[in-house]
Amino acid sequence: MNNKKLVSYSKYGYIFAIPFVLTFLIFTLYPIVYTFTIGFTDLHGAGQTELRFLPSVGKPLFQNFTDVITSGSFQKAFTNTVRIWIVNFIPQMAFALLFTAWFTDRRTKLKGQGIFKILFYLPNIITSATVAILFLALFGYPKGPMNDIIMALGISKKAVNFTASASTVRGIIAFIQFWMWYGYTMVNLIAGVIGINPEIFEAAELDGASKAQTFFLVTIPCIRSILVYVLVTSLIGGLNMFDIPEMFIGKNCNNAGLTTNMYIRNQAFLGSYLYARAAAASVIMFIIILILCLILLYFMRDRDEAKLAKIRRQERKAAAART
């Protein structure tokens, strides 16, 4: 990989980044700063709408944060989120990689693979609200298609009340998430593969690499950076999960599908309009996501490049020491 950068052109770096930075400063910065600030106040969305910092009303500065962390609902929401994310993420990644391998394989050209590629992303096009309603209908009780199937096959004599059992609810939500997002992940990965120079594959073929060898030893290392993107965004997206669990189960089934993002919205909009506490919970989630992402990035770092950088640093140090 050629990593030589052209220092003399550095002013274009600034120029090209200006639109992004300006827009960010105007439209995104205020809401973010606002969020981080109100976490330390007792601001409500309605009623108490004055910005008062907690110490000025005789409360500890971190009251909102301790309230959130010690709350049973938040802890439950966090465990749920992590559980649902893991159960959906592992098969999602597995199938996305599998289909990427099949569809980008140059030797066994699967007939009609174009159609399959197009179809697999389709679930992502429909709004989550519609998807949730359709699945709710599918798992209806005491009547519904899933119950019809179960009773026809004789798996159960009585209709099953799917949305009354916590683990079933979480399982269904994880399945919906998997089903909506494996195509998205696949499309990203395929885009990465398309970006690889075909000569690399030709060379691998000439060397007599098997399909599996080509995929694991050539394709995956070449799309490492896209893979990192997929992992990071999936982690962020998973921990911010909202639409499907909210519309599929909401607060029902003893909060079996409550996610942290739902918890945050509940704080903000459920009657008490606890904007301050919602902001504090957001900051807490931000810190958690940040830590997890850093861990992920550390494990996924380009080891060769990191080594190279380290060697260069040492060389520079040594050179500096010599002079």
Binding site: G45, N240, F286
Partner: peptide, 12 residues
């Protein structure tokens, strides 16, 4: 990217 969207949405 890592900031949960909900509350920045409220601010916006």
């Amino acid at each position: 990217m890592m900031i949960p969207g909900t509350v920045t949405m409220i601010g916006f």
